[in-house]
Design a protein around this nucleic acid. Structure first.
Lengths: 211, 211
DNA sequence: TCAACCCTCGACCAGCGGTTGAGGCCGCCA
DNA sequence: TGGCGGCCTCAACCGCTGGTCGAGGGTTGA
């Protein structure tokens, strides 16, 4: 139960979560026996907390205010307190490895995608030409933002989209494997297997890193 | 002398300034007798420190880095961190799924590994034969546990180690890419890139999952 | 000369963000 | 059916950050 969370973000410990709960930052449901039960949105919330802490050095007190504001229908902003509701600016939202999230259901225009990921047209074109990002109809989903952001960060290290093609190939193979097991429709098992695949991948990469 | 500063920011005390000096955030000149003498730029600096602290909750360590970067000629941003020479990602830069964790430093015997992951000898042998797990000397590290657990879970879906070989190949390719960028030694950047690779991978897998 | 202000240096402190450990319940597997 | 791992709570403890305080002493100016 906790394993899943641990695999997804490695520096979360059980005591940290308990602490965060005690501070009122998450409130997981409980089983009849009193065990914590984390919903997809709890995980989303935790990811928001952890990334805000790490990337923006925000104290928990402030993060808590942000979450509270978000709960009351405001939008999170990349840096600074939550702002009033605005058009579509999903940037800064928790970047979740949460396979049940409804981020998939976002529908972004090309412009919105670029704005959200902070990338320029040239990069987006390259990403599409290598099929790292693919439009559905003429919209993009939330995963496209994540891909674009990651690609942009790779760019800062001099890694270009064409170098990233093996990632696409690997993802395709994994998805193929998953579909062989669970069939061509997206079910809960599909999502479980996807999470599993990502965990395996992460562990393998880490295990092969130079010492 | 200090009065001037006090008038400008209410909550600056003399001891706070002494503390900030001790931390290397300001270095006012001294009079012959050893008294601090604040130049206009010292005051400016202090203003930056105090506002960054108050408005952005930045820890002094980070503020100090920003000041250092500004000293080295980077653009001083009004109410924000100095921008890197070229367009950098706003916030959310490095990530770490804890690629620096000391899990790597575990040394497990074969038995310990099997016990920790809850797998049997046969499975472990298969994993080794496909090089999903590799011993170092005759010990295994903590990542091996994660790999083994994930493989065991795949097993429950009928996915066997040999089906997982593409994962190994993908991980190897990614590590190869990372090493090309950061060299063959493990540094902080290696770990950042590894985390980045895993995130990209996760986003790609998700984006390709059936709807 | 003396009050008012500055200096240094070491001790001390409060709050934050957790970790640890004791003592106990849950659930599964042998 | 009992043993064992994993989760639970609650209280104590911990290390780090960001300072404050006080003793002991020099400087300045009326």
């Amino acid at each position: 139960m906790l394993q899943v969370l641990q695999a997804e973000f490695a520096d979360v410990t059980i005591s940290k979560i308990r602490f965060l709960e005690a501070e009122g930052l998450v409130t997981p449901a409980r089983t009849a026996a009193g065990y914590r039960k984390f919903s997809a949105s709890d995980v989303e919330r935790l990811r928001y907390v952890l990334t805000a802490q790490r990337d923006q050095y925000l104290p928990l007190k402030v993060i808590k205010e942000h979450l509270g504001a978000m709960d009351r229908g405001l939008r999170p902003t990349p840096g600074g307190p939550p702002a009033a509701p605005q058009a579509a600016e999903p940037a800064g939202l928790p970047v979740a490895e949460d396979f049940g999230a409804d981020r998939t259901e976002l529908k972004l225009t090309r412009e919105e995608l670029r704005a959200a990921a902070g990338i320029d047209e040239a990069l987006l074109e390259q990403l599409e030409s290598h099929q790292l990002i693919v439009a559905r109809g003429n919209h993009y989903d939330g995963d496209a933002i994540l891909v674009a952001k990651a690609a942009a960060q790779f760019g800062q290290y001099g890694v270009e989209p064409r170098h990233l093609r093996p990632f696409r190939a690997a993802a395709d193979r994994e998805v193929g494997l998953i579909e062989q097991v669970t069939g061509p429709r997206r079910t809960e098992r599909t999502q479980e297997l996807a999470a599993l695949a990502v965990r395996l991948h992460a562990a393998l990469v880490r295990s092969r890193l130079p010492r």
